[in-house]
């Protein structure tokens, strides 16, 4: 039982981080129709900025996190201005290479700035644990789950209860019509890139205290966030969150109860099965990705 609880909570926490990254994809995708391949490196950059603010600027931890989120929102806008806006009307290939290039530049900047040696970001709760049904659960995992829940709720409200949300949904359902209705596409795409940048930083500071921080930090979460988007059908917030939790749980429970050697494979096998059997996603209705 303890073992199950332990693996379950870990799986949910991992899934929660994938969900935050995947929501960033979803936002940008809804508003602009493209996939931002720089998302993983934005996660990494967020963690490094938090480390810099906490160690070099000696800010309190939460202040450092806030700096990271704000900085990444700005970086998101910059990416939109320099790597997306100028080529918005070009083919999707050009956009893909451009976001890839932006990612490469971000990564190179991190290496030049902070070096390649693995390092670490402190978590606000250190290594404290709580006992739940006999299992020792790291408090950081509970924090990740809690913050993600708040974040998902806020995004849902933003999507469904504000003018901004209505406009994003309008863009997603019919771009051309939305444009003709006077939705300011350029402003919307800047806003969503900024918001997605902030979400990446959030994922970064949540996940960094649970592992060594290297320039690859965001790569895994990005890959699993893709998988989560697939499972969720790339459509709704709920779908993406369920997909992400499924990925995290399959990885942990599959590793725990089937064969641990192949723990990394299970999410991908699941993903392949979903694509094979239900190509529109478990919760999705229609595929609308421009890719």
């Amino acid at each position: 039982m303890e073992r199950f609880v332990s693996l379950f909570v870990t799986g949910v926490a991992q899934g929660a981080v994938f969900a935050v990254v995947a929501l960033g994809f979803l936002l940008i995708h809804k508003a602009t129709g493209v996939i931002n391949f720089a998302q993983g490196d934005l996660v990494t950059l967020g963690a490094y900025i938090a480390i810099w603010a906490a160690t070099d600027l000696e800010l309190p931890l939460l202040g450092a996190y806030a700096v990271a989120v704000a900085a990444l929102a700005a970086v998101g806008v910059l990416i939109e201005r320099f790597a997306y806006a100028p080529i918005r009307d070009r083919s999707i290939h050009v956009v893909v290479i451009s976001t890839l290039g932006a990612a490469l530049v971000i990564r190179a900047v991190i290496v030049l700035w902070r070096g390649t040696s693995p390092t670490r970001l402190r978590g606000p709760l250190g290594f404290e644990v709580v006992e739940v049904l006999g299992a020792r659960i790291p408090k950081q995992n509970l924090l990740i789950i809690g913050v993600t829940a708040v974040c998902v709720a806020a995004l849902w409200l933003l999507f469904h209860r504000t003018q901004f949300g209505r406009q994003v949904r309008a863009l997603a359902s019919d771009r051309m019509a939305a444009q003709m209705q006077g939705i300011r596409v350029a402003r919307m795409s800047m806003l969503t890139f900024g918001l997605a940048g902030g979400l990446s930083a959030l994922a970064g500071v949540l996940i960094a205290p649970t592992r060594a921080v290297t320039v690859d930090l965001g790569f895994g979460p990005m890959l699993y966030a893709f998988a989560a988007s697939i499972l969720g059908g790339m459509g709704s917030i709920g779908g993406v969150v369920v997909g992400a939790l499924a990925i995290g749980l399959v990885q942990q429970l599959g590793g725990g109860y089937l064969s641990p050697d192949y723990a990394e494979v299970y999410p991908f096998v699941l993903m392949l099965l979903v694509i094979a059997l239900r190509p529109q996603g478990v919760l999705g209705s229609e595929v609308r990705a421009r890719l």
């Binding site: 991908f268 595929v287 990705a289 421009r290």
Partner: peptide, 28 residues
């Protein structure tokens, strides 16, 4: 044949999953 029903983006992700699995199989 397995992923024949998938479209653009899903197909891309399926190939990504395929490469990931292939690497682990090569190793194991």
């Amino acid at each position: 044949v397995l992923v024949v029903r998938s479209d653009h983006f899903y197909f891309a992700i399926a190939t990504l999953a395929f490469s990931h699995i292939a690497l682990i199989v090569f190793r194991e």
